[in-house]
Every structure is written in structure tokens, then in C-alpha cells.
Design a protein around this nucleic acid. Structure first.
Length: 420
RNA sequence: GUGGCUAUAGCGCAGGGGUAGCGCGCCUGAUUGUGGCUCAGGGUGUCGUGGGUUCAAAUCCCACUAGCCACCCCA
């Protein structure tokens, strides 16, 4: 049998209630914060991700779905959402809409990883970006938006960690200091970290294997330039005065190259190994890479599937009433079928969810099916009803049945539904 | 990419060299136009795939694939 591709999922019926719930919260919160939606293509030129996410990152080196199309172009299914948004910003001249621009997106991302709890090959992210503000105020609002989103979902079982990884200038000094620190400890490091020493030394900090060695490594916070330091302090002060709890995690380093200055993660210990539900930070250099235009920006991305794991874990009762209210069951004759569609149309005009049984089968089976899909009322149309210009309405739960004159039917059904 | 565990009906599971099982669901019937509840009946299956051992494999062995979990990485 043909099966779905590893690390992908079919989302249907009961599972979808979580998605609707989350999508509703996204719409509500982004709307209240005046963020506009943007939808970018699911695939882009490979070059975009190599340059922005970074040649040396795991995402680019081993996790991208890259292929050549028939025109010999190298294409990549997007592994993340920020680079495409930045590309769209540059390409469409969004500067002209007036800055800052507050955008959000929601959609599929693709990474070739080995699936496990909270990790899929096709997964979904909700992300938000503020493009065109270099100020800590934007950092604050992005974090505030994320918190409000989680509040809307009634999720409060997480912790916020923040850090500053500095701008280009101060990072240079810091990397120097790190190299010095690790230089004589290099052969004690794990295999991966030996490579990272040259390629991306910041990553040594959050390696779980070499925790002991990294314990006394110099902190980036001691190397921040005045501007970075002030911005970080201002952000912390603002968070404090707005009563937002957070911890500074000086080892927090983001995995994508484009980040700078503020970095933050929201983690929950209810999630198992993949404990990060949301992550983000400032990426002042990204738009410069793509469009040679220096536009500062800050944003976050949130893993929808991980949110769903949390919602399930918290056992919230998420209502999702998708049951049709009325089933119309035409019986045996072409006239009955004709009437069925006419009645359905009349009921739907009154915004009543109406299900028409489109299988020509026994009344027993029709009612059984109506019961199965959970309708409140069944409308029976057969010989007897047709010849008397009436229809029979059965109240499924009570088991009672009554006749209605045809011209009154939508009225009476509407009334009846309000009483059930 | 590495490791541990797992794979039997639509779903959840038991069985462990010799006729394929249970619960739920599904289907049929209990006088022809009445669901649910009850009763009676029905197994709907390539026992993940391919190979090997054997008179005989769902069962033992090997490989592969997929799932779960962890490493790694990230959301």
C-alpha cells in the first residue's frame, strides 16, 4: 500500500479542531495587534536560504529539501518563514508602505530530519515580524504578541528565556574571546563541537555534551558594545515593568545565522525533548544580505504541532461543533429527490447546516446514517408526504416525529432547533 | 546521520513453528417507510516488505521500510 511520506501527517476530523482553535487565536491576536498577513511561496530559490539562514547551519547543510526543476533551477522547499518574508519585502518594495511593517504568516515548512515527538518533516509555523524598527520597543512588542497568542490559547505552562548575542561588532570580539577560551580545551570537546570550533563557535555554548567545559566560558553579555548593552537593558526593564517573567540564558544561541542582538525562546517542560514552542529574535542583517538595503527587523516563529501537543497535554475541552443540524432524507421517488434539494436550499438560506442524504437506500439506513453524523432533526420525504404536501420531521434525540406543512417547514425547523 | 523499542482487521490490542483471535467500529437481519438500546448473524487480514531456515513461518534468522522515543538539530 502507498503510504504517506515519512514525517508528514493527514489532519482530519477530530484533529482539526485544534487547528481551527489555533488559527482563530492567530487571527484574533494579530488583528488586535494590527499585523498584516503575508503568504509567500512554499518553495524558493535555494540561494535564498543558503545566504540568509547560513551556509554553515545544520538546516542548510543537511535538512533542506532541495531539487532541480525542469528548467535546471535549484529549488528548495522553505525550511523556515523569515527569509521568504524578507525576500518578499525587498522584491515588492514594501518600504514604500511606510515602516515599520508588521507582518505575520502561517504555513508549512519542510526539513529533512528524523521525526520524533514534536518534530516532523512537514511542519507548520505561525510567525510574526516587525520590519523597519531597530528599537527595543519592537522586540518587546514581538514578545508581547507571542504571549498574547499563547494566552488566547490558555497556555501558560512555559518559560521565557532571553539573551543578546550582540551585533556584528561586539560579536567579533566575543568570538575572539571564545576561541581563546576553548583553544586549550579543544580535544576534550565532542566531535561535532570540534568542527563547530571553526565554523560556528557560538554553537558550542548550547551543546549538552560539553556542558561542563562551557560552564565557565566567557559570557557574550560581558562583550556587548554600548548600544547592544543599552538595548538589552532597556528591553529587560520594559519586560519587568510590564510584569512579564523571563530568565536571561547567556547560553541561548539561535541556530540560524541571520540573528543578532536580542534572541529569545519560549520553552515548556511538558513537551519532552523538543521543548521549544516558540523562538525568535532580531535579524538586523538579513534584509541587507538579500537586498543590499539595511533594514532592521525582529520576529518569532512558533511550531503549531508543538502547541497542539501542549493543548492535548493540558486536556482543554476544545469545542468544535461541526455536526449538521438537519438531515434531509428523500425516499425512493425522483419527486422526493427534487424536493430534498429544494428544502435544503431553503434551510441553508436561513443559515441552517443541512445535510442531504445522496444515497438511494432504505429508510432504515438513511436514519442510521443521520444518527451517525449527529443531526438534531431528520426530514423525511416519501410517497405519503409528497401526496399531502407535507414532510415528516423526526427529533433524533427524543425519538418523536411530527408532520409539517411544506410552506412552513423552514420556519418551524428554525424554531425547533432553537429549542433543542 | 546514530541508538533503543515496536509493526497482527478501519481503530485499540492478545497470541508466538501446524485451520488467524479479542474489544470497539463496520455490514446483514429481527414482516417490506424509522436511527440509537437489545438480540441473532457476518471477519472485513499479504500478521509492515523482501529474502533465508523448515515437511510446515504470522511465529525463528537476516535485510529493508515505517512508527514511537532519545541523541543531534530546531519550531
Amino acid at each position: 500500500m502507498l503510504k504517506k511520506i515519512k514525517g508528514t501527517q493527514d489532519i482530519s476530523f477530530d484533529e482539526l479542531k485544534y487547528w481551527y482553535f489555533i488559527e482563530k487565536a492567530i487571527k484574533k491576536v494579530t488583528n488586535l495587534f494590527c499585523f498584516k498577513e503575508i503568504r509567500t511561496p512554499m518553495f524558493e530559490a535555494t540561494e535564498l536560504f543558503r545566504r540568509s539562514v547560513g551556509e554553515a547551519t545544520d538546516v542548510v547543510q543537511k535538512e533542506m529539501y532541495t531539487f532541480e526543476d525542469k528548467g535546471k533551477r535549484s529549488i528548495t522547499l522553505r525550511p523556515e518563514g523569515t527569509a521568504p518574508v524578507a525576500r518578499a519585502f525587498v522584491e515588492n518594495g514594501f518600504v514604500n508602505y511606510g515602516l515599520p511593517l508588521k507582518l505575520y504568516y502561517i504555513g508549512s515548512m519542510f526539513r529533512y530530519e528524523k521525526p520524533q515527538a514534536g518534530r516532523l518533516r512537514e511542519f507548520h509555523q505561525f510567525g510574526a515580524e516587525i520590519i523597519g524598527s531597530k528599537d527595543f520597543l519592537a522586540d518587546f512588542e514581538i514578545i508581547e504578541l507571542a504571549i498574547n497568542f499563547l494566552d488566547e490559547l490558555r497556555i501558560n505552562d512555559y518559560k521565557i528565556y532571553i539573551n543578546s548575542i550582540g551585533c556584528k561588532k561586539c560579536r567579533m570580539d566575543y568570538i575572539e574571546a571564545l576561541k581563546n577560551y576553548y583553544a586549550d580545551k579543544k580535544d576534550q570537546l565532542c566531535e561535532d563541537c570540534k568542527k563547530r570550533y571553526d565554523q560556528n563557535i557560538l554553537r558550542l555554548l548550547d551543546c549538552k555534551e560539553d556542558k561542563e567545559i562551557s560552564k565557565d566560558a566567557p559570557s557574550i553579555l560581558d562583550y556587548l558594545c554600548d548600544e547592544c548593552k543599552n538595548d538589552f537593558d532597556d528591553l529587560k526593564k520594559l519586560l519587568e515593568s510590564r510584569n512579564i517573567e523571563f530568565s536571561v540564558d547567556k547560553n541561548l544561541v539561535r541556530g540560524l545565522d541571520y540573528y543578532s542582538k536580542t534572541a529569545f525562546e519560549f520553552r515548556s517542560d511538558r513537551l519532552g525533548a523538543q521543548d521549544q514552542i516558540l523562538g525568535g529574535g532580531r535579524y538586523d542583517g538579513l534584509i541587507d544580505y538579500i537586498g543590499n538595503k539595511s533594514v532592521p527587523a525582529v520576529g518569532f516563529a512558533c511550531g503549531i504541532e508543538r502547541i497542539i501537543i501542549l493543548l492535548k497535554e493540558l486536556e482543554y475541552d476544545i469545542e468544535f461543533d461541526s455536526n449538521p443540524k438537519v438531515a434531509i432524507l428523500p425516499f425512493e421517488s425522483p419527486q422526493a429527490f427534487n424536493k430534498a434539494f429544494e428544502y435544503a436550499e431553503r434551510l441553508r438560506r436561513r443559515n441552517i447546516e443541512t445535510y442531504v442524504d445522496v444515497v438511494n437506500r432504505s429508510m432504515k439506513n438513511k436514519l442510521k446514517h443521520a444518527n451517525r453524523i449527529g443531526v438534531k432533526l431528520s426530514v423525511i420525504i416519501g410517497e405519503d408526504e409528497l401526496s399531502n404536501n407535507i414532510l415528516s420531521i423526526k427529533e433524533m434525540k427524543a425519538g418523536t416525529q411530527f408532520n409539517v406543512e411544506e410552506s412552513w417547514m423552514d420556519h418551524i425547523i428554525e424554531n425547533k432547533l432553537n429549542k433543542i
